[in-house]
Amino acid sequence: MRMELIQPFINAADAVLAETLLEGRVVLDTDVPTATAIASALIGSPVEENDPSVKEAIFELANLVIGNAVTSLNDQGFRFKINPPEPHTEDKGLEGTEDTEALVMSFDTPSGSVFMNIAMRYNRRRRQEREAVVSG
């Protein structure tokens, strides 16, 4: 059977039977000298490694990247709510899970390498669960 005849039924069933919720996190991962160099560039003057403005600048960078990406995703029909950024300073990265798709990209900048770690998880709820949430 031709796929284009089947696809509308799949789409309709998906819309009626299940709701796909997306959750995700984005990590901007970089070393301290690179973070300091990026912060200095954003601020427009050199800052020391232990200056609090380094963290503030990286937070704002994350906000800009995520905010602009979510704006674009929203135009494609994906709805996200953004939470304010949090610092993670451990050497070990955040662990993934079986149901989480993760992707790591490296950006080579004049200030050094920045790794962007994006993870998404699909939470599918059946119709009864969805109605229970709405009525509750």
Partner: peptide
């Protein structure tokens, strides 16, 4: 003033 500039 926000980085999240979608229509809604």
């Amino acid at each position: 003033v926000s980085s999240v500039g979608y229509q809604e």
